[in-house]
Amino acid sequence: MAISDKPVFDRPSADPSEQEEGTRLRPRFDADGLVTAAVTDHASGELLMVAHMNDQALEATLSTGVAHYWSRSRNRLWKKGETSGALQNVREVRVDCDQDAVWLKVAVAKPEDTCHTGRTTCFYRVVADDGRNLTVRDRTGHPAAS
Results as ranks from 00 to 15, higher is better:
Ala107Ser: 15
Pro16Arg: 08
Lys80Arg: 11
Asp96Cys: 02
Pro7Val: 00
Ser71Ile: 07
Leu47Asn: 10
Gln88Phe: 02
Ala144Met: 10
Ala107Leu: 11
Asp32Cys: 03
Ser44Gln: 03
Ala144Asp: 10
Trp103Val: 13
Ser13Val: 04
Lys80Phe: 08
Thr120Pro: 07
Ala37Phe: 00
Val136Met: 14
Arg125Glu: 07
Pro7Glu: 00
Lys79Tyr: 03
Leu25Pro: 08
Glu18Cys: 00
Met1Tyr: 12
Ala38Gly: 12
Asn54Met: 03
Glu82His: 08
Asn54Ser: 04
Arg24Tyr: 01
Arg94Thr: 11
Asp130His: 08
Ser73Cys: 05
Asp15Cys: 06
Thr36Met: 12
Thr23Arg: 14
Arg28Asp: 13
Arg137Lys: 13
Leu104His: 08
Leu58Val: 06
Val93Ala: 05
Lys79Gly: 07
Phe29Leu: 10
Arg139Ser: 08
Ala38Lys: 07
Ser73Ile: 05
Ala57Gly: 05
Trp78His: 03
Ala67Leu: 15
Asp98Trp: 07
Thr114Ser: 07
Val90Ala: 08
Ser146Cys: 12
Ala57His: 01
Ala51Gln: 01
Thr120Lys: 12
Arg26Phe: 06
Met53Gln: 14
Thr61Ile: 03
Ser73Thr: 13
Asp30Thr: 03
Asp138Arg: 04
Pro16Ile: 10
Arg91Tyr: 01
Ser17Pro: 00
Gly141Asp: 05
Ser44Val: 01
Met49Ile: 05
Thr23Ala: 13
Val90Pro: 10
Asp55Glu: 14
His42Met: 02
Arg11Gly: 07
Arg74His: 10
Met1Gln: 13
His142Phe: 09
Gly33Glu: 04
Trp103Cys: 12
Arg26Val: 08
Asp96His: 08
Asp98Phe: 11
Asp41Tyr: 00
Val127Ser: 08
Trp78Asn: 02
Trp78Ile: 03
Gly22Met: 10
Gly141Gln: 03
Thr83Glu: 07
Glu20Lys: 13
Trp78Met: 01
Arg132His: 13
Ala145Glu: 14
Gly22Tyr: 10
Thr36Val: 15
Ala107Pro: 00
Ala14Asn: 13
Glu82Phe: 02
Arg91Thr: 10
Asp138Ile: 02
Asp138Pro: 04
Ser13Tyr: 04
Leu58Glu: 06
Gly65Pro: 03
Glu46Ala: 12
Glu59Lys: 15
Glu82Asp: 13
Ala128Arg: 15
Val50Cys: 11
Arg76Tyr: 01
Lys79Arg: 15
Val35Tyr: 00
Gly141Val: 03
Ser146Ala: 15
Ala2Val: 12
Ala67Val: 15
Ser71Tyr: 00
His52Glu: 09
Gly141Cys: 03
Tyr69Ile: 09
Gly81Asn: 06
Val106Met: 09
Arg94Leu: 14
Glu46Ile: 07
Lys110His: 11
Ser84Gly: 07
Thr40Ile: 15
Glu18Gln: 13
Arg94Asp: 06
Arg132Leu: 12
Gly22Pro: 11
Glu59Arg: 15
Arg119Val: 05
Ala60Tyr: 07
Arg72Ile: 00
Ala38Tyr: 10
Val127Gln: 11
Arg74Ala: 10
Asp130Arg: 06
